[in-house]
């Protein structure tokens, strides 16, 4: 059985995710599969997956570098196929283990993100499905404008060991908007 930071008994299971002026949703348990290193892009393409430009996303494939890809749709099928496939096929990027995955949405989304991310994420400057590799909540992170279950917002991938830290940083940043 897998235990993620916010699962019962997980490293951050005493942390409450904020859900008022901003909503933080933990997507860490969702499947994802990352490939990195030479051969990754070609193998993925041979599986019939799209190959977007760097720092763009297409049909659930995030491309973070020339040979650095993360698949967030039908990831488990792909993982099984990858394990069975002969080289060259790139290397496992362990993205389901290295990263926490959280979604931010809510009334003060823009206000809070302006406090925790140095990139201009306004709708005019940062379009739907755009990706930035930058800092979010004082951590190196990947931020992606992403509507999840009908909630417009952003997905953020960051160091899984910093899950509690990130959740607390977001809560602190949101505090000024919930008071008064």
């Amino acid at each position: 059985m897998k235990t993620f930071p916010l699962s019962p008994g997980g490293a951050a299971d005493n942390v409450t995710l904020i859900d008022d002026v901003i909503t933080l949703t933990d997507l860490t348990p969702l499947p994802r599969f990352g490939l990195k290193g030479r051969g990754s892009a070609a193998w993925l393409q041979a599986q019939g997956r799209p190959l977007p430009q760097i720092n763009q996303i297409a049909s659930g494939v995030l491309r973070l570098g020339r040979e650095d890809l993360v698949v967030v749709e039908a990831a488990d099928d792909l993982r099984a196929a990858w394990h069975a496939a002969p080289a060259p096929k790139g290397y496992n990027a362990w993205r389901e283990e290295t990263w926490a995955w959280m979604h931010l949405s809510g009334q003060h989304l823009g206000d809070v993100l302006a406090k925790i991310c140095p990139v201009d994420l306004s709708p005019a400057a940062f379009k739907d499905n755009q990706i930035a590799q930058t800092r979010v909540g004082y951590l190196e992170a990947i931020i992606w404008r992403h509507t999840f279950e009908g909630r417009e917002g952003f997905s953020v991938f960051f160091d899984i060991a910093a899950t509690a830290f990130f959740a607390n940083a977001v809560t602190t940043a949101a505090r000024e908007f919930s008071e008064g």
Binding site: I54, N55, G65, P118, V119, A132, Q133, T134, R135
Partner: peptide
């Protein structure tokens, strides 16, 4: 060249 213009403290 890969990520575009950013604050220099990202580098």
């Amino acid at each position: 060249p890969m990520n575009g213009p950013r604050n220099i403290n990202e580098f």
